[in-house]
Amino acid sequence: MVNSIIDVRNLVKTYGEVRAVDNVSLQIEHGEVFGILGPNGAGKTTILEMIEGLRRPDHGAIMIDGLSVWPNPNRIKHLIGVQLQTTALMDFLTVREMVRLFASFYGIHMSRVKADELLDKVALVEKANSMINQLSGGQQQRLSIALALVNDPKVLFLDEPTTGLDPQARRKLWMVVEGINAEGKTIVLTTHYMEEAQVLCSRIAIMDHGRAIALDTPVGLINSLGADAKITFTAKHPLDIEKLARTPSVSQVSQFDLSYSFYTSDVQESITNLLGLANSQSVKIENLNVAGANLEDVFLHLTGRGLRE
């Protein structure tokens, strides 16, 4: 961990009784797209904004590129670019004017050409002359990413960049993020969409109730389940699956009424066994579904709850 661009140690933040962030440590490496995945209220925004220097931690240390963020966050302002969870901008300026205005806050005089180059990176050049308040949700998110890039930062923070966007706008934003990462910038993003984390992130921290309950690559996290797939089905009558549950390849069997689900590391063996059981008990099986395991399953496995409930 000599080279971590972001080094977070034992971070704690409490609001009254709520431990919003509860002793979290993270190391984020150069060039990563690091994801913080978790349900509403998990503490994603709180941890991000402490790293950005917007909220003061109760305990813990944060270093960005070797500089300590606290007690003086001014020192790291030039290193980072930030998109907050809620984008709020001044009205009555055009997209291009806004970009140039933000550049001027960093003491940078940005030419029109340079501004348009930047807007091109976030697929927004054709809107350069539009007024801010006429942008769609996805366009506004992309503009706020452009604004986060005006100072050519080393690290880009994106707090739920795609929440509330339709699938098409979301995909477009993913491409933008990938493009920025390809330039070598480190990106830290939060999301509660597991597909987003899976597609974009090199590593993911899963958060719940202020704690980082898992941290690995997407593949590593899924492998940690020890299962290739999740099998779900419903039965016409109650089925005794005790025997199936005892096979080593099967884990996490659950039953709700006549709906059953379990994970398996050997799909073929499990299906054969399942059909054998059903035949021997003369129970008809319906809606048999085999799905590759994903991060949602990891979260479910770790907490017993879904990501969105």
């Binding site: 917007l54 901008l89 806050f105």
Partner: peptide, 16 residues
């Protein structure tokens, strides 16, 4: 109004 909307918060992140 800008403070309520969070614009000032965003500006606080810049060195202005």
């Amino acid at each position: 109004a800008r403070r309520e909307k969070g614009v000032l918060r965003r500006l606080k992140l810049t060195p202005l």
